[in-house]
Structures are given as structure tokens and as C-alpha cells.
Simulated assay, not measured.
Amino acid sequence: MQNPSATVQARLHNRRFVVANNAQGLSGTGTVFHYKVEDGVISSTYQGGRIRLGTQVGRVTGVDSIELLYHCMTINGELLAGWSRGTVGVDQAGHTTLSFVWGWLSGQTGGGESSYVELTVDN
């Protein structure tokens, strides 16, 4: 059986993602996430839109699941932090997708659901 982190690593490592849906969240049009995965450990940076700079750290938790902690500085100088649990998938066009349930830990309250799609030449 293949190592669960290898499947996620193949779908995420050194790939970029954009927001598909994030109605309750801060990231949006113009925000780009760049992921790295090594031995089940996930890291990423993100920026654009309302995000001046953000980072994430997390781990692979299953064959298609991940968990992350994130923090960012907004263009308005807000410092925010939160958590997320996600599923890695593939859409009909073959692009990697990410779907998350998330919540704030610091700087804001509440949470929501969001989805992202791999940034490719055709999207």
C-alpha cells in the first residue's frame, strides 16, 4: 500500500492554488497559495488580495486529508491566526482541489468552509 503522505505530496508539492469559494474568509480574488510537502509535513506561503503575507504549517493526516495552522498579516495591518482541516481532491479537468473547514484562533472569531483549485495555465 502506498504511503498516505506520498499521495498528498504528489498533489500538493510545489503547486500553487487560488480561491474557488471562501465566502466567510479573508483570502479571495488575487490570493495565491504555494505549498511544499516533505515527509508528511506541509508548509506554504500565501499573499495577494487582502493578504499581505501569510504562512501555513501542517501535516498529512490520511490518504486525502490534511490539517493546517495558519497566520497572516493583512494589508490593513491585522495579525490573524487560525486552524483548518482539509481534503485533497481532483476536479473533472484533472486539477488538484482543496476543501477546508476552518476557524479563527486569534484576531477574529468564527469560521467557515472554503475551497481552492490548483493554479494552472488554463485557469
Rank of each mutant, 00 (worst) to 15 (best):
E113C: 01
S65G: 15
Q24R: 11
E38M: 13
L119T: 03
Q47V: 06
Q24F: 01
R52D: 10
R59D: 14
V57P: 04
G107I: 04
S43L: 12
N76M: 13
F100H: 01
V88I: 00
E118A: 02
R52G: 09
V32C: 02
L68N: 06
F33S: 01
M1I: 14
N22F: 04
D91R: 11
L98P: 04
I42N: 04
R15A: 08
H34Y: 11
V19I: 13
A10N: 09
V60T: 00
S27Y: 07
A93F: 06
D91L: 05
G82S: 00
Q9D: 10
N123R: 05
F33D: 09
Q9F: 04
S44W: 07
F100S: 01
V63E: 14
H13K: 14
S43H: 06
V121T: 15
Y70E: 03
V32A: 00
T120L: 06
I51P: 02
Q2G: 12
V117H: 02
C72Y: 03
L26I: 05
V37S: 11
G58Q: 04
W83N: 12
R11G: 14
N3T: 11
L98N: 00
S84V: 03
Y116R: 08
V37H: 00
T109W: 13
G49K: 02
S114L: 08
G86S: 02
G62E: 02
V121D: 10
A10T: 14
R50E: 13
Q47L: 15
V101F: 05
F17W: 06
G82A: 05
H71F: 15
G110D: 01
H34I: 09
D91W: 01
G89F: 00
Y116G: 04
N3G: 12
M1E: 11
L80F: 01
S5V: 08
E113G: 07
I42D: 01
V90M: 07
H34T: 14
L98F: 02
V18A: 12
Y35M: 09
V88Q: 01
T55F: 14
H13V: 13
T45F: 08
D64C: 09
Y35A: 06
G110T: 01
L80I: 10
R15V: 07
D91P: 02
G94P: 12
V121E: 14
